[in-house]
Simulated scan of single mutants.
Amino acid sequence: MAGGRPRSFDDDVALDRALEVFWRQGYEGTAISDLLKAMGINNAPSLYNAFGNKEQLFVKVLDRYADGPARYIREAFDQPTARAAVSALLHGAADATTEPDHPRGCITVQGGLACSPPAEPARDELTARRAAGEAALRQRLQAARADGEIPADADADGLARYFTTVYQGIAVQAGGGATRDQLHGIVDIAMTVWPS
Rank of each mutant, 00 (worst) to 15 (best):
A2E: 15
A2Y: 13
G3P: 15
G4N: 07
G4Y: 07
P6Y: 00
R7I: 05
D10I: 02
D16I: 00
R17G: 04
E20M: 05
F22D: 00
W23S: 05
G26S: 03
A31M: 14
A31Y: 14
M39S: 04
A44Y: 13
S46V: 01
S46T: 08
S46K: 01
L47V: 14
Y48P: 12
F51G: 13
G52Q: 10
N53Q: 12
N53H: 12
E55L: 15
Q56P: 04
Q56H: 10
V59R: 15
V59T: 11
K60Q: 15
L62P: 01
D63T: 12
R64W: 11
Y65T: 11
Y65W: 11
A66T: 04
P69C: 03
R71I: 07
I73L: 08
E75S: 13
E75F: 09
E75N: 11
E75G: 07
F77Q: 00
A82T: 04
R83V: 00
A84E: 13
A85T: 05
A85P: 01
V86R: 05
H91W: 06
G92H: 01
G92N: 02
A93V: 02
A94N: 10
A94P: 10
T98I: 03
T98D: 01
H102N: 08
H102C: 06
P103W: 01
P103I: 02
C106T: 00
C106K: 01
C106D: 14
I107V: 15
T108H: 08
T108M: 14
G112M: 03
G112A: 14
G112I: 06
L113F: 13
A114V: 14
S116V: 05
P117R: 01
P117E: 04
E120Y: 10
R123Q: 10
E125M: 12
E125P: 00
L126H: 02
L126N: 06
T127N: 09
T127Y: 11
A128L: 12
R129T: 02
R130V: 11
A131T: 04
A132C: 03
E134I: 02
A135V: 06
A136F: 01
A136G: 05
A136M: 11
R138Y: 09
R138N: 08
Q139P: 03
Q139V: 10
Q139W: 07
R140L: 13
R140M: 14
A143G: 10
A143P: 08
A146G: 13
A146C: 06
D147T: 12
G148R: 07
I150L: 06
I150A: 06
P151L: 12
P151Q: 10
P151V: 05
A152F: 12
D157P: 03
G158S: 03
A160G: 11
T164P: 02
V166Q: 02
V166C: 08
Y167M: 13
Q168T: 06
I170W: 09
I170D: 05
A171C: 04
A171D: 08
A171F: 01
V172E: 11
Q173I: 12
A174V: 09
A174C: 04
G176T: 09
G176L: 15
A178L: 13
T179Q: 05
T179L: 07
R180G: 12
R180H: 13
R180Q: 15
D181F: 07
Q182L: 15
H184S: 02
H184R: 15
I186W: 06
I186K: 11
M191Y: 04
M191E: 01
M191K: 00
T192D: 10
V193Y: 04
W194R: 02
W194N: 00
P195M: 05
P195T: 01
P195E: 05
